[in-house]
Every structure is written in C-alpha cells, then in structure tokens.
C-alpha cells in the first residue's frame, strides 16, 4: 500500500473510495479545504498569453495578492514564489514540496508539462540539478494530479461508480502526434460533475460526447482489445477526473516516468504479471502489447520473460495470451514488489 492509498483510500484502494467521486463529497471537502489551499482551475476567463520567442514579454496573471493576516499562521505564505515557463505561479519549500498559492489561476496539465520540461532540459546537460527538478515534478503531481495504471476489470468497475462519463480527445496524442482533427484520437474519458462547466471552454471540452455506462464499457473493452493501457487520473488530488487509454511514447505521464524517471506521475497498478511457463508456447504475442518494456523472449527456452520489477500491472499481456500463460498477482501480496508503486 503506497502513501496515496493510506491518505485517500479510507482503508482500501484509493480509487474505490466513493468520497473521491461523489459530487457532494467533493463540494464538502472543497469547502473544508478552501481556506488553506484554494486555487482555481484555469477556465479561459482571461486570455492566457505566452510568447515563446519573448518570454520576458509574456503576460499572464498578476501575482496573487498576499493577504497579510494569513502570513502569520500559514508558513506557506512566506515561501518564495516561482513561475513555470507558462507563467503559472507556484511555491516551493526547502524540501522541494510544491504548492499552488491561494487564489492562483492555473491549468494543471500545462503546469505539469512545464515542470517536466525543466527536467527534460536539464537531463544530460546539468546532471546535478536533475534530482531536485524531479523531486519538484513528483511533489506537484503527488499533490495535485497523479495517475495510476488500472486493469480492465477495475476500469469497468470505476465506470459504474462515477457519473457523468464523457469521451474526449486525448490531449497527449493531440499535442505530441498532432492528431487534432475533430473525432481523431478520442481516447480519453472524463469523469465527474466538473465537466459540465467546460462547455464554456472548447479548448478543454475537446469535442466531448457524453456516454451511458454501457456505451463507455463497450468503448473501454474495445480499447483494451486494441492494446491500450487504462490509467486513472486525479485532478486536484484525490478527486478523480479521468480515465485515459495510454500508450508509450505519446502518453506524457508514462513518458515522464519511463524516460525521465519521475515516479509518482503515474503509479504502477495493483497487479503484476507473472508467467506460467507450462502454458507458454513462445508465440510472443504478449510482448507486442507491453507498453512499459517489461517483457522479452527467452529465445533459448522459447518462453516469455517478464521483468516483474518493471511491470506496471496493466494486464494487457494476460488479455492477449491465447494460452492463459500469464497470471496477474496482487502487488501488495508479493513481497519483492509490494513497495514498488
């Protein structure tokens, strides 16, 4: 059990905790936490202007006002203010913990890519800075926007727990592969009451169509057959905002973790794949479906090899094995990998 389940799971898996879905719970929790940590999701009410050629001239929002009464009893109020490259404000303490200041208007996705970009630019160039930058991304994602790989069965359960469900264009595929035509790359599911407000902001709405639970389940099963990995994403932790159907390298979450080693962007699933050698005929079909580089062929034995320490537990190999030669074991009951999340 990783610290997210301890903190948000109420004794079980964090994503099966209804408090992370229900609208009423969300608004109650919001009221409770509003005082200490409120920020606003950017909804396009003010134009966001970023001029990459003249970063010094870029204009965003004014620095959020500092309320003097808060400074005394809030240690965060004294922390220094930083800005991402898209001019979103954040605060960071000496441990590298990141917090979005009260009253700031931010877009979590853009903030994530901004912070990850700092890691990308430092990789191989300023090696000594990388660990601290990684820590920053990890802290930001852990506090506001982390995801986890889930299996098909868990995904189908989730769709019954949440309402409403909308299908929309995948932002990662749109940005990194240019799949921006309407209806192209409709791979992401958005969950929860938050999406109603988006109609005002087509950039976030991205051609969203509302689906019934049955339709959503059919789509997910279809994507699973295609070989896409399901992942569950929080928007403003622990509120669950979306299910994505990801693949490497276009998924920026998987990429941030595999290529740049920032853990806690996307956590490993509750399961892990294990080969059953008696059943394996060495067809190699499963290896095609591994998005995480955990599988290879033991050619001399003509059997599959799974690196269980690299496995994210998406269950694709198990689903695509014609001979049921792969079984999924529970991560938390497997001692060697039980703390690899």
């Amino acid at each position: 059990m990783c610290h997210f389940c301890t903190k948000h799971g109420d004794g079980g898996k964090w994503f099966e905790n209804a408090a992370n879905f229900a609208a009423r719970m969300y608004s109650n929790r919001k009221k409770k936490t509003e005082k200490e940590e409120k920020f606003v999701q950017h909804m396009g009410s003010e134009a966001l202007k970023i001029d990459p050629d003249h970063p010094e001239k870029s204009r965003m929002y004014a620095t959020p006002p500092i309320i003097t009464e808060d400074i005394a009893d809030n240690p965060w109020a004294q922390q220094k203010m930083f800005e991402t490259r898209s001019k979103f404000p954040y605060q960071m303490d000496s441990n590298g913990d990141v917090k979005i200041p009260k009253g700031a208007v931010v877009d979590l996705d853009i903030m994530f890519t901004d912070l990850l970009k700092e890691v990308v630019d430092a990789t191989g160039v300023e090696a000594d800075k990388v660990p601290q930058l990684k820590r920053k991304v990890a802290s930001f994602m852990g506090n506001y926007h982390f995801g986890q790989v889930i299996t098909l069965e868990e995904t189908l359960d989730m769709l019954e727990l949440t309402y409403p469900i909308g299908m929309m264009q995948c932002i990662c595929r749109r940005e990194t592969r240019g799949q921006m035509a309407p209806g192209e790359a409709n791979f992401c599911f958005s969950l929860g009451v938050g999406i109603y407000k988006w109609e005002r902001w087509p950039e976030t709405f991205r051609g969203l169509t509302f689906l019934s639970v049955k339709e959503a389940k059919e789509m997910i099963t279809h994507y699973n057959k295609k070989g896409l990995v399901h992942s569950l994403w929080t928007f403003n932790v622990p509120y669950i905002g979306g299910i994505c159907n990801c693949e490497y390298p276009v998924c920026q979450g998987i990429r941030g973790r595999l290529d740049y080693g920032v853990e806690s962007i996307i956590l490993k699933g509750e399961w892990c794949a294990k080969p059953i050698y008696e059943n394996c005929t060495g067809c190699g079909n499963c290896v095609r479906y591994c998005q995480f580089g955990a599988m290879s062929m033991q050619l001399s034995r003509n059997k599959v090899a799974i690196d269980m320490k690299k496995c994210f537990g998406c269950g694709q190999c198990e689903k695509h094995c014609p001979n049921s030669a792969i079984e999924m074991v529970e991560r938390r009951k497997t001692p060697g990998i039980s703390d690899l999340w």
Binding site: H42, M43, G44, S45, A47, L48, K49, I50, D51, P52, D107, I110, T113, R174, E175, T176, R177, G178, M180, R200, W201, P202, E203, P249, V250, R255
Partner: peptide, 24 residues
C-alpha cells in the same frame, strides 16, 4: 504536423500559446 507524425521518438510537441473563453 508532419514532423509530429513521423518522429519515432515523439520528440516534437505542440503547445498552446493562448487560451480564450468560448473559443477553440
């Protein structure tokens, strides 16, 4: 968007410079 589609390592990325309400 040709470079985005062809890169084997998916190096390129588009990012929005401006977001406005009620507008795509």
């Amino acid at each position: 968007r040709k470079c985005l589609a062809i890169c084997p390592q998916a190096v390129f990325k588009l990012h929005l410079g401006k977001v406005e309400k009620y507008k795509l």
